[in-house]
Amino acid sequence: MTLDLGSGISVVMLALPVLGGLLPAVAQDWRWILLGVALAEAGAGVLLLRLWPPFMALSLLIAGWIAAAFLGLGQSAQWQRGAPMPEAWAGRLFRFTITGFALVLLAYQTENTLAWLPRGFTPAMAWAALGLMLTGILHLAMTQHPFRVTASLLILLAGFVLVYAYIEQSLLLTVLLVGVKLFLGAMGSYLLFAPVAGEGA
């Protein structure tokens, strides 16, 4: 994988999975996790601007941020109720190790993944998109807490949209993706407002 680090876009591509993927993995405070989601959405939005008309890319970016805000609203309510996310150092270390290892593996194998991606996909873009998807899936596998689950799904979707943007660009698709993101954020928030049975991260 070669990256021109002089270009701002390349820096975004390189940093995206690290910020959007690793930050939520190591963070204990829910606000840092939310920041990771917001950064993933922002990075994906910037990259989407190269592929889609601006109003479509910005719609998705704003929808992602609103979804994150919904999620933050739900989690802050739970936090104020005195129900913080249960977390231990060992869990954070485990998540960091697994996510870091997966990202290293992806960086090593980026060229090989291109056959599975649409034509025109560059290795750097593959790193950014697949990195977000991979970290999203890994987080999903390691938690059952509604906040972390929804955050992981938003990160996964941010990466997926980058892949899908190469294949399809239509107004209906944008509307549906915006709807899915908003719905997902709202449902995550809804689950956080409700009392949770058998909660555990």
Binding site: V149, L156, L157, F160, P195
Partner: peptide, 30 residues
């Protein structure tokens, strides 16, 4: 996603199954 308020009405505790159901279904979509 529309089935979430159906499965977990606001006045009842949210079961672990609801979260997993949403997560796995969303995973299949991409």
């Amino acid at each position: 996603l529309a089935a979430v308020p159906l499965l977990a009405p606001g006045d009842e505790p949210v079961g672990e199954g609801v979260v997993r159901y949403v997560a796995w279904t969303t995973l299949g979509m991409p």
